[in-house]
Design a protein around this nucleic acid. Structure first.
Lengths: 346, 346
DNA sequence: GTGAAAGCGCTAACAT
DNA sequence: ATGTTAGCGCTTTCAC
């Protein structure tokens, strides 16, 4: 059938040296005569040798693989799982996480295996996967606020790094954004351009990040003499943004500024506003959050609070790498600063 | 540091049996006394044993992992790679592929490792990965028409299944859609609702699927007395849909129906139409393609030609599984039928 | 039905 | 600088 795969032994025989020597040149260990290196390299070429990773992993106890886990609230039917996966990918946020993670991992030849942990069973699978040594650690992105996975990972003593501070304290490293500052940035910008009747479409209040963006926004407005800010809660989706904006407009037809806690909801808000023939930013200024891909394609392009997701994700991978290599032992938090990106919507 | 992980040996000692017996119960092999099975199971419980996958893979020569490869045209800078990943995930199409693949794989405890192959170096990495036995096979989704990866995979004799028929024949299994029929469905629907001046925003003509959707659309119209159909080529993105619709409208201000070769471009078309105050479908009917997530959230919701991506992706995984297990040896093509989904836009 | 033992292909001491 | 050798933890004949 498929011909036998060459092993270290074969290469050694071909090159007339020992397995150990071949192993040394394959792994780039020094202490090998340059001339012999060349001979071995040629033998590798000729035989078409590729090191068997299972054998290597068995002795090194490392796989060069990390689990990229998308963790969420828990439906368990097949349709629900499909929907979960589709929803995750529909959010431009996740694509940026992957880009950042892969950007760090790829140069190091480590690969991400995609896992969904939206049910108790799926969480068990993630733990089993890690315990079987199939991956060196886990990168966890929770969509759900009170995700049980981080605690399980920590208890099991498995290397893991989280995107966003967990709801309840867990001895795990994480990267996060200074969400409160982000809310402040949005408020200051709206105020600076003269808005006086501003409202906000906040994210799910069960999510700490939503709470903080809202708090930063509110506090700043209060400090500038606007103690009462209409709030509509959304779910970080386009639809929820549409619904929230519709509600807000019904109760406060005279508003002149809106801060949406992510770009998707901001886009929904813009859609509603345009349908109602409100000019953006003339009649109503709109500020989003994230600076995701939709921010640029939205009509009009969104002024938004940028979250450097790619950089954050890359750092998450870096932290995990350090934990796995053992050069970092204590849980560490890295908090990034948001930045206002001005486009046309405000 | 982290306590020693229990091995088969430990469980065997704990249960008072041999390694072989423990292995048998772990792998569900029969010929084990039920009483002993129970003893072993308890020992596993007590020790918290989890089989080491590297060791198992070393002897079984199977990993329970498949590479999910997104293959594309070739930029090689870090930014280009980031952008590639972000773009891939921005397309709702890919999320559905993942959902379908995971739906099949998960019940079988096999996991997808995500790989991007947009450059020659990245392609080499994919081949090396497979040759090292780190994955049992590859599931390939090409965004680029003349992707060199399938041929490389076939030459190397590595198990692989493609999403969509490759540009030039390659001895690999693939799943695909009857795109031509999809184009026909769109044309028939537009005709049936009375449109007489229809145009189309086709996909990149370098992609076979685009060609076929266009051909099916054109042929059907021609057969009904409309030999000349204005065509604008897009790139399957929102922006390109906007540009194409703008052009079409400039040249043919009186058109009353548009078929866009995917939903993203249809959405762009709708945006332009609404800005121009054309009513949809009253003034201009719009038909999309894919029935992706944007179809439902578009304003108005899109009438579209459904491509059963999840089912196709699941079948792709099934074919690969069969090739890997050796129960299927010949390259096989599975072609799915499109279906018209009526919503509000046409 | 169960155990003994031979590898799977590799790395890493340890010798030389 | 290079070779020898002892495992890593598992599955799988082959005896019993």
């Amino acid at each position: 059938m498929s011909r036998q795969v060459p092993t270290l032994e074969d290469v050694a025989r071909e090159a007339g040296v020992s397995r150990a020597t071949v192993s040394r040149v394959v792994n780039g260990v020094r202490n090998v005569d340059p001339a012999i290196q060349e001979v071995v390299r040629r033998a590798i070429e000729r035989t078409g040798y590729a090191p068997n990773r299972a054998a290597r992993s068995l002795v090194t106890r490392r796989t060069g693989t990390v689990a990229l886990v998308v963790s969420g609230a828990g439906a368990s039917s097949q349709e629900a799982q499909d929907a979960f996966a589709a929803r995750v990918f529909a959010d431009p946020f996740f694509g940026r996480v992957v880009a950042g993670v892969v950007g760090f991992l790829r140069p190091r030849s480590v690969h991400p295996v995609l896992m969904f942990a939206e049910s108790a069973g799926a969480r068990r699978e993630v733990l089993a996967y890690l315990r079987q040594g199939r991956a060196d650690g886990a990168l966890v992105v929770s969509s759900h606020a009170d995700d049980p996975l981080p605690a399980l990972l920590a208890e099991a003593g498995l290397p893991a790094v989280l995107f966003a501070r967990p709801f309840r304290p867990v001895p795990l490293s994480y990267v996060d954004l200074a969400h409160r500052d982000g809310g402040r940035l949005a408020a200051e910008h709206l105020l600076a351009r003269g808005c006086r009747r501003v409202a906000t479409i906040c994210g799910p209040l069960a999510v700490p990040a939503s709470q903080e963006r809202l708090a930063g926004f509110r506090d700043t407005l209060a400090r500038h003499g606007h103690p009462h800010v209409p709030v509509a809660e959304g779910g970080f989706t386009l639809d929820s943004g549409i619904a929230a904006m519709t509600d807000l407009l019904a109760d406060h037809p005279d508003l002149d500024g809106v801060f949406a806690a992510n770009d998707l909801m901001a886009q929904g808000a813009c859609q509603v506003l345009r349908e109602r023939n409100r000019r953006i930013p003339g009649d109503v200024a709109v500020v989003g959050f994230d600076d995701s891909t939709v921010a640029a394609t939205c009509r009009p392009p969104l002024t938004t609070v940028r979250q450097p997701v790619e950089a954050m994700a890359a750092d998450m991978a870096r932290l995990l790498d350090e934990h796995v290599r053992g050069v970092r032992t204590e849980p560490t938090a890295v908090v990034f600063d948001p930045e206002l990106v001005e486009r046309d919507s405000a």
